[in-house]
């Protein structure tokens, strides 16, 4: 039984480490800010889920497990808010994303009109 738990921990945490490393690599490699946000989001979700899941398997069933669960819950609740604030601030600051191929002309003009609607949305945020 112990052996099974150990093996499950190894597998879970090794996959988690793989995703953490990919996150760092993606942060370095992606061409512009908007795509880097996606790479950063990976560490917040699946990597933390797998690593804390592996730790929970090691800890047995106790208060420690509850604390691990709470950390994952905090990360899942707070990270989208921080990411959204970052993306929105970037967009308002006027940084244009690099689109290649798939985003055609229509998408580009749409994002132009978005800029025109900016004062409107900051007002709707205030209430």
């Amino acid at each position: 039984m112990d052996l099974v738990l150990d093996i499950a921990t190894w597998i879970s945490m090794l996959i988690g480490c793989f995703f953490v490393l990919i996150t760092g690599y993606g942060l370095l490699k992606f061409p512009d800010l908007y795509t880097r946000i996606h790479a950063g989001g990976m560490a917040d979700t699946l990597a933390s889920f797998l690593i804390f899941g592996g730790l929970a398997l090691q800890s047995g069933f106790s208060l420690v497990t509850a604390k691990l669960f709470f950390i994952v819950a905090f990360l899942f609740l707070t990270s989208p808010t921080a990411t959204y604030a970052l993306a929105q601030a970037t967009f308002v600051a006027g940084l244009k994303p690099k689109l290649d191929g798939f985003g055609e002309e229509a998408d580009n003009t749409e994002s132009e009109t978005e800029d025109g609607a900016k004062p409107n949305n900051s007002e709707s945020k205030s209430d």
């Binding site: 942060l27 880097r36 950063g40 690593i51 990360l75």
Partner: peptide, 19 residues
């Protein structure tokens, strides 16, 4: 903003590292 993003990612990884 790139720096803030990297800072945020480092913070998340630090949480994992502490645990």
């Amino acid at each position: 903003y790139d720096r803030i993003l990297a800072l945020n990612a480092i913070g998340t990884k630090t949480v994992m590292l502490i645990a």
